[in-house]
């Protein structure tokens, strides 16, 4: 029995980055990929080509990935390595990216497994042909610090004026109302931006909103969405984002063109 399992330290596995049509093999030459064991290479399927790399199985087990997912530097390294290969391939031919950490026991297994999925890959290639993915993030300024305590002259704190309690409550109530109004306006801006961008996109998806540590202290993210946009409408999108920013007063960040990661799955 010569079966090689992942428990053997010298066993290999095959990491798959993407599936594409007619790649130029030189597109991935020299890319590091996810390991130094072997170069990134192409693996011919029947009508498609997989972009693969031979890795040490023991470094790509579930346990290894769980550890990686908990270590930001490792995670960043692998995410960027995966993305770099996908982006390089997509720059030369129509490409369906696979999610990070798609692994098979051997190249033969990749052939078998992916050949069964050929229809889905062809459908995905068709869906994203002549399209790119664009991310749109909308931010509004975060609430200024509560000024309800500073609206009167800071008089002698030890002796509050008559009615000071009531006035304090009124100010608090006013601040609360202003905050709610700002939130409503922010959400309306987000919905307006999403609706307008969707009108020129082929498909759209909402992503989770970023928290304050990613968005920054001075602004609140109110929309994080991504759109599949036809190539010939990319310029229109740029202009639209600019116009929407001016009209809504919100800060709009456009990122792209991306390989349509978010639109190759079942939408």
């Amino acid at each position: 029995m010569t079966e090689r399992g992942p428990e053997r330290s010298d066993a290999n596995a095959t990491y798959v980055f993407a599936v594409c049509r007619n790649p130029d093999p030189s597109a991935v030459a020299g890319l590091p990929g996810v390991t130094d064991k072997a170069p990134v290479s192409t693996l011919s399927l029947e009508t498609l080509t997989a972009i693969v790399q031979t890795v040490r199985a023991c470094e790509f087990t579930n346990e290894a990935w769980q550890a990686r997912l908990c270590d930001q530097r490792q995670l960043e390294r692998y995410a960027r390595a995966h993305h770099d290969v996908v982006a390089a391939v997509a720059a030369c031919c129509p490409t369906v990216p696979l999610p990070m950490a798609t692994l098979y026991q051997s190249e033969e297994r990749v052939r078998d497994a992916l050949a069964n999925e050929a229809d889905r890959f062809h459908a995905a290639l068709k869906r994203i042909a002549h399209h790119a993915e664009w991310g749109v993030k909308v931010y509004v300024p975060s609430c200024p610090p509560d000024d309800s305590n500073r609206s009167t002259t800071p008089a002698d704190r030890s002796r509050p004026a008559p009615g000071a309690g009531l006035a304090y409550l009124d100010r608090k109530r006013g601040a609360q109302e202003r905050r709610e109004r700002r939130q409503d306006e922010a959400l309306q801006a987000a919905e307006a931006v999403d609706a307008e961008v969707r009108s020129l996109a082929t498909a759209s998806r909402r992503l989770r909103l970023h928290g304050p540590q990613l968005a920054g202290e001075r602004r609140v993210q109110v929309l994080n969405a991504t759109y599949l946009v036809a190539e010939h409408r990319a310029a229109e999108l740029t202009l639209l984002a600019q116009a929407l920013g001016e009209r809504t007063g919100a800060q709009i960040e456009l990122s792209g063109p991306w390989v349509p990661y978010s639109f190759v799955g079942e939408v």
Binding site: P6, A13, V16, A57, F60, T61, N62, W65, Q66, A79, H82, H83, V86, V96, P97, L98, P99, M100, A101, T102, L103, Y104, Q105, R109, A113, L114, E117, R120, F121, A124, E133, L207, T226, W258, Y261, S262, V264, G265, E266
Partner: peptide
């Protein structure tokens, strides 16, 4: 993008 919903293909090595 790389971790989120892409085309779902079952690999041999189950990564949770």
């Amino acid at each position: 993008r790389v971790l989120d919903k892409g085309i779902v293909i079952a690999g041999d090595i189950k990564i949770d």
